[in-house]
Structure formats: C-alpha cells, structure tokens
C-alpha cells in the first residue's frame, strides 16, 4: 500500500476540503489510480471540476509529481510510490 499526497487549489481544494489530502493505493499503482480513488471518494463534485462534460473526458492539465511536471494527457500510467506528492496544476489561461 502506497500513500500519496495530493495537492489541489481553488475549486479542487474546495472539493477536497483542504489543500492536501492523502490517498492510499495498492502497489503497484499509477497516477491514474490515484484519481480513480479520489473520484470514488469525492464523487460528482470531483468529477465536475476535472471532467469536461462536452467531451466526457478529463480536462487536460499538468501535474507536479514530486519535482517533475507531467501531463494528464500522456502520463496517467506513471507509477507512484509511497510518499509521493502530486500537485494538480489546473488549466491556466489567466487574465
């Protein structure tokens, strides 16, 4: 069993209830499995802030996996280990 810290900001933090939550996943596990667990735990509110209803797919975003930037579009199969940290860096266009 690996425990992964997940950080989220603004609307994601609102759904998680705090900035950092810990997610337990059976090893070996990939980044995608962490999101499956989060979706099981937080349900529709979590889906609403990460999945695009128009496409039915996860909205593309970057993540920081420890010190490395990875992509939701290509890196969900990356392995995670106990003590890893994933920060969800939401699509940012800015004004």
């Amino acid at each position: 069993m690996a425990t992964v810290r997940v950080k989220g900001f603004s609307v994601i933090r609102d759904v998680l209830g705090k900035e950092v939550v810990e997610v337990a996943v059976d090893e070996p596990a990939a980044v995608g499995r962490v999101f499956d667990v989060l979706l099981e735990k937080y349900g529709k509110p979590f889906r609403d802030v990460l999945w695009d209803p128009e496409t039915g797919r996860m909205t593309p975003f970057l993540m920081r996996l420890n010190e490395e930037i990875i992509r939701s579009t290509s890196d969900m199969d990356r392995q995670v280990r106990d003590g890893d940290e994933i920060a969800i860096i939401f699509p940012v266009g800015g004004g």
Binding site: F9, V11, D48, V49, T59, I69, I89
Partner: peptide, 22 residues
C-alpha cells in the same frame, strides 16, 4: 467547463498557487 469554473469564486487569481507549484 472545469477550466472556467473557479473564475466566479476566485477570479483570475485562481491561478496563482497552481502556477507557483508548476
């Protein structure tokens, strides 16, 4: 749209923490 949600609650400063993380 998830990329638009949050602008209502936080405005464009929604981005600040995430950008620093990146």
């Amino acid at each position: 749209n998830p990329a638009v949600k949050g602008l209502s609650d936080y405005g464009t400063p929604r981005n600040v923490a995430g950008m620093n993380e990146a």
